[in-house]
Simulated scan of single mutants.
Amino acid sequence: MDQMKEAYERMGLPEDATKEQLDDRYTLLMRQTRSHQRREPDRAEEIEAEFSEITKAYKFILEEETRKSLEEMNQKRYGKYKKFAGTAEKTDHFFRYYKFHVLGGVALIGVLIYIVISIFNHQAEKERLASLPPVDLEVMFLGSYMNKDGGQDLTPIEDAILAQFPEWKRVTVTMNYVPPLDSNNPQDAAMLQKALLVLSTERPDLYIMDQTAYDWVGNQGMVRPLEAEVEGVWKDLLTPEQLVKGTNEEDGSEHVYAVDILGSTMSEELPVLKKDMFAGIREGTERDANAQLFIKQYLESSK
């Protein structure tokens, strides 16, 4: 069977499906996977393995679409030569190849050196991570968040959280950018694809989302309902305005999937540029208690 046809069949789509249909289908399958894992926890690993095959199919289709786009560019570039288009392309590639042949050899040496250094660095990183204490909480900022200093280092955010929870030894933080959902910018579309793939592979304990990110995935099974906490230990710490609700797309029931923690002094201590902070707990996390503690203390520090 043709590999492209097989990939589309695995996605449950016809081969003439649009890019938007492909992305929507992948999002739906990811949501269904999380739902199945909740209903059948004993099959969670098997279901995850099945979804990984869907992810491979999705990435294969995207890569093939990129290849076709390159072919179309070549056609536009060399099509004017008509039946000699192939010869023109090969000639162009020939001169381009020898023009950069020497540079290519130098680059190859550089790549080999980089690989060797990367192997040593990877081994050193493995040893460093093995020497660290177990992770107490994994936090993902999902949306248009940025470091206050504009850099890429997330260590200051991790240190700020550890300072707030001195009983913890280690916190890891990641940032997953989600662009405006109504954007027509091709770069934003690519960033949305990247965010989707990150969500399908990474498993933080706590999501901190802005409004755009929550509207995208907040009620799709990624985070669990919080009614038990909202009506229990958090009851006296919350106002109705802090409840971030959503509709379960499977049965139409309404739930609280996150709470707004922006109006707290602890949130202001984080070196993060933000406009919304909706905190939700990942469905099935083994560090659920610590995720609850994080939210509880942020609510207690609300103004």
Rank of each mutant, 00 (worst) to 15 (best):
Pro271His: 09
Asp260Glu: 03
Asn219His: 02
Asp2Met: 11
Gln21Cys: 10
Ile281Met: 00
Val135Glu: 07
Phe294Tyr: 09
Leu137Lys: 02
Leu299Ala: 07
Val171Pro: 00
Glu45Cys: 00
Phe294Leu: 08
Leu162Tyr: 02
Met73Glu: 08
Lys19His: 13
Glu138Met: 14
Ser52Glu: 06
Leu103Pro: 04
Thr212Glu: 08
Leu243Ile: 10
Phe278Gln: 02
Leu29Phe: 04
Pro179Asn: 03
Leu181Asn: 09
Glu286Met: 13
Ser144Leu: 07
Ile261Ser: 03
Glu283Val: 02
Glu72Ser: 10
Asn74Tyr: 10
Leu22Cys: 05
Ile119Pro: 05
Pro240Trp: 11
Ile115Ala: 15
Val244Trp: 02
Ala279Cys: 11
Glu202Lys: 01
Ala17Asn: 06
Val217His: 04
Gly221Pro: 06
Gly110Gln: 05
Ala213Arg: 03
Val223Glu: 02
Ser301Tyr: 07
Phe120Val: 14
Glu241Ile: 09
Gly86Trp: 12
Glu227His: 07
Gln297Cys: 08
Arg25Glu: 04
Glu65Pro: 01
Lys83Glu: 07
Leu270Tyr: 00
Pro204Arg: 00
Thr91Trp: 11
Arg25Cys: 02
Ser35Lys: 06
Val116Met: 03
Tyr207Ser: 07
Arg203Gly: 08
Val233Leu: 09
Ser118Pro: 10
Asn176His: 04
Pro133Asn: 08
Val102Pro: 00
Glu249His: 07
Glu127Trp: 14
Phe165Glu: 04
Tyr58Ile: 00
Met140Phe: 12
Met222Gln: 12
Tyr78Thr: 12
Phe294Ile: 04
Glu227Cys: 11
Tyr26Met: 09
Ala107Pro: 05
Ser302Ala: 15
Gly86Ser: 12
Gln37Lys: 14
Leu108Arg: 15
Glu202Thr: 15
Asn290Val: 07
Asp236Lys: 13
Val233Glu: 11
Gln152His: 09
Thr155Met: 00
Lys126His: 11
Leu13Asp: 01
His101Ile: 13
Arg39Glu: 13
Pro204Ser: 04
Phe294Met: 06
Gln152Val: 14
Glu125Arg: 07
Gln220Leu: 14
Glu202Leu: 10
Glu138Ser: 15
Phe165Trp: 11
Gly110Thr: 10
Trp216Arg: 06
Ala190Ser: 04
Thr155Ala: 06
Ile115Arg: 12
Met209Asp: 04
Thr247Ala: 08
Tyr98Pro: 05
Val217Arg: 06
Val171Cys: 01
Gln211Thr: 11
Glu15His: 05
Ile113Tyr: 05
Glu125Leu: 09
Asp24Pro: 04
Gln3Gly: 07
Tyr81Lys: 00
Glu40Val: 02
Gln152Trp: 10
Glu125Ile: 03
Ala88Met: 12
Ala7Ile: 06
Pro271Gly: 12
Glu249Tyr: 05
Leu132Ala: 10
Gly79Tyr: 00
Glu9Ala: 14
Gly104Asn: 05
Ala190Phe: 05
Asp42Tyr: 03
Lys99Gly: 12
Phe141Pro: 04
Ile109Tyr: 08
Phe95Leu: 08
Gly143Phe: 09
Thr239Lys: 07
Asn121Met: 12
Glu249Ser: 13
Glu50Trp: 10
Ala88His: 06
Asp210Arg: 01
Gly151Trp: 07
Leu108Pro: 03
